[in-house]
Design a protein around this nucleic acid. Structure first.
Length: 160
DNA sequence: GCCAACGTTGGC
DNA sequence: GCCAACGTTGGC
């Protein structure tokens, strides 16, 4: 099975690429959208590439790269009464919500801002640049992934 | 902080 | 099954 590529959003107030660099690995709990869940539960594979996207940030954009370190498994936070991700519809025998683990790969020297993504040739079809695109877990193509990674490393290569 | 776009819920 | 109301996301 060929490697797949993704973009995953997170608000900096919740988690950042620096947090991931520090932790090395983290579980991606709290996704409560069926489409995003399906990607995590059914489609993501070990070592898939993930563009780490900071939403509601200044500026919003891709701040680095992660990889899938563990494929879909039940989000146990949904079972913890009182937890902000608690959902009575999800049980241990019939889990509704799933998560994956991400491992840190690299932090870009600069944020590849949404504005940059929107004006970069080859990224016109990317989900995140479409108007009203709120899905927090989105598939990306290999070409899109490689283009964004190149942009993220650009500053480093041109200043060295 | 505003508000457009979207997903979900619930009345009918 | 329709659709209005509501809550959330997320750019600006």
């Amino acid at each position: 099975m060929p490697k797949r590529y993704w973009l995953m959003k997170c608000e900096p107030s919740a988690y950042t690429i620096d947090d991931l660099a520090r932790d090395g690995k983290t579980c991606w709990e709290g996704v409560r959208n069926f489409q995003a869940r399906n990607f995590m539960r059914d489609t993501m594979q070990l070592d898939d590439g993930v563009l780490f996207y900071a939403s509601n940030a200044d500026p919003s954009g891709v701040t680095g790269v992660a990889r899938i370190a563990r494929t879909g498994y039940p989000d146990h936070y949904a079972w913890q009464k009182g937890h902000k991700y608690y959902d009575a519809k999800s049980t241990e025998t019939e889990p509704v919500w799933f998560m994956v683990d991400l491992a840190f790969v690299e932090r870009f020297p600069i944020t590849v801002s949404l504005a940059t993504l929107k004006t970069t040739r080859g990224l016109e079809e990317m989900k995140v640049v479409q108007k009203g695109s709120r899905l927090s877990v989105q598939p990306a193509t290999k070409a899109e992934y490689q283009t964004v990674v190149r942009l993220g490393r650009k500053m480093q290569s041109t200043t060295s």
